[in-house]
Write a protein that binds this DNA or RNA. Structure first.
Lengths: 205, 205
DNA sequence: TAGATTGTTAATCGATTAACAATC
DNA sequence: TAGATTGTTAATCGATTAACAATC
């Protein structure tokens, strides 16, 4: 679904107003059938003989994905990745609102970065009590990841967006964990490369 | 598979030497059947009545994922995310070797960061000709992403690790693209939260 | 030997694809 | 009306799960 949204945005940018399931499928590597079925799960967005209206479809998808929900988020750990997110990632575009950041480094505490205030990690609890948030963005160092995550799960946070490359908990906990494991992605990449290599060698024979 | 690898590492760290498919499944949210089938695709790593030897299994998985392949990589765009990767991400741990970085900013060109030299983006072509690499890590700003990626696909790069949150090409190109789309992940997170909310409201009734 | 747990085969389930009537 | 393309139903495929014989 997010990929559809991104495609619609790029189609809008390039001035297309109309698109068929076959065109979408071709761009994204799906079959036309799959595209139509994906959409028809949520309603009837197209028109026979015409296709889909790009702008209307974009709004439908955005609605399904809930890009207007305004969930609140705090960020824990203003290191490289933390700053990368604070600086270059547009939370609001995706329905989130980054309201505060926390760190343990005294040179960062009390400052703000790109309009987001940075407080002492020690104040996290009291902050969350008066300002409940939905999501914690976990960009702390690897070695404190589990500890901080455990703590978070007792603070009423609904979900953790995990950038630490650490496997967080056994399932069963009621906190949602969404992982951004760079290493997983890179390993897949390596796997694809070696697969491709194998194919090429076969073809030579 | 990467998740199995991470789990093995954490089991080794906590001193476990033996593990059963049920234990693995429980930790990772799979059924024991699935775990056994995943492994048996690649060989027989376990022993009836005993389970799996954690260290041996770790090495098998590492071998399957190819964490020792030593693929070469260059990084394009030494911004926040670029530096986050150069500084905190251990490429070598996952079988990759980050050999060089490129940027357009003259204050960065000629310097190095965490032992990786940064050159002018203009020199990319000539560099690649004398030093062929397997992977390009794409951490450039959104608006030049497509352009740079197009260019890369003509330079003999096998794969692109894409951090730009932009949909790169139509399938059919022979360059492998592995996406690290932060927004996709965050949208999924939002979707899970709202799903959870719906469930909770149903239970109230 | 008895208990445990694998590897594998068979059964189930869901997701993808193909086909086609509906209709713009 | 003819052509195009949807939404949906049926067929196919693959992946997950369950079951169980093999065996440590």
């Amino acid at each position: 679904m997010p990929r559809y949204l991104r495609l619609m945005d790029s189609l809008i940018a390039s001035g297309h107003s109309r698109v068929s399931s076959s065109e979408i499928g071709e761009k994204l590597g799906f079959t036309p059938s799959q595209v139509r079925q994906d959409f028809s799960n949520f309603g009837e967005f197209g028109q026979q003989g015409y296709g889909y209206n790009v702008k209307a479809l974009r709004e439908q998808i955005a609605g399904i994905l809930g890009t207007d929900r305004g969930y609140k988020a705090v960020l824990l750990g203003v290191g490289h990745i933390g700053r990368a997110l604070m600086g270059n990632f547009c939370f609001s575009e995706w329905g989130f609102n980054l309201v505060h950041a926390f760190d343990v480094d005294s040179t960062k505490i009390g400052t703000e970065y790109r309009g987001v205030a940075i407080s002492d990690m020690k104040e996290l609890d009291s902050y969350l009590q008066s300002n409940p948030v939905d999501v914690a963005v976990l960009t702390v160092p690897k070695d404190v990841a589990v500890e901080v995550a455990r703590h978070l799960s007792t603070c009423g946070v609904r979900a953790i967006w995990n950038f630490t490359n650490v496997e967080l908990f056994e399932p069963g906990t009621d906190v949602i964990v969404e992982n951004m494991h760079f290493s997983d992605s890179l390993l897949s990449l390596g796997y694809f490369i070696s697969e491709r290599q194998d194919e090429e060698e076969k073809q030579k024979k």
